[in-house]
Simulated scan of single mutants.
Amino acid sequence: MYNKNDFINDVLELIRMENLSEIDESECIAFSIEIIKKLKKQNDLLSKIPEEIWHFISDVDIRSKDSSYKIEQTKIILKTVYDWNK
């Protein structure tokens, strides 16, 4: 069963993927879609996810084109994940 820890690990993996030069935008988008599909099967988890994390998952294409946005959004998401995981 896909749980909160699995989800957080996937979000962190998405961040890692976005920072590897050998991985392109399409792979990151595909991974974010995979995360969403997993979440849709877990209604209890789905309703608990902070809005900032949803925003992050859906903005892969924007981050790939705008490095300053990527930096700012990554800072926000890391803090959000940390706070949510306390």
Rank of each mutant, 00 (worst) to 15 (best):
M1E: 14
Y2L: 11
N3V: 00
N3P: 06
K4W: 05
K4V: 01
K4D: 03
K4S: 04
N5C: 01
N5F: 06
D6F: 10
F7H: 05
I8M: 05
I8C: 10
I8F: 09
N9I: 10
D10A: 10
D10V: 02
V11L: 09
V11C: 12
L12K: 12
L12H: 08
E13N: 09
E13V: 03
L14H: 02
L14K: 07
R16Y: 06
M17R: 15
M17F: 07
E18Q: 11
L20R: 09
E22M: 00
I23Y: 09
D24S: 00
D24I: 01
S26D: 06
E27H: 09
E27N: 10
C28H: 01
A30I: 09
F31K: 15
I35N: 08
K38E: 12
K38N: 12
K41I: 09
Q42L: 11
N43K: 11
D44V: 08
L45V: 08
L46S: 04
S47G: 07
S47M: 13
S47H: 12
K48G: 02
K48D: 01
I49N: 10
I49A: 12
P50K: 14
P50E: 12
P50C: 07
E51R: 11
E51Y: 14
E52S: 15
I53P: 03
I53D: 03
W54K: 05
H55P: 05
F56W: 12
F56C: 01
F56R: 08
S58A: 09
S58T: 08
S58D: 13
R63Y: 05
S64D: 14
S64I: 07
S64N: 08
K65A: 10
S67Y: 14
Y69N: 01
Y69D: 04
K70E: 07
T74M: 12
T74S: 00
I76M: 15
I76R: 06
I76F: 06
I77G: 06
I77A: 05
I77H: 02
L78E: 15
L78G: 01
K79V: 13
Y82S: 14
Y82A: 14
D83C: 09
D83E: 13
D83R: 11
W84F: 07
W84C: 05
N85R: 04
K86G: 12
K86N: 11
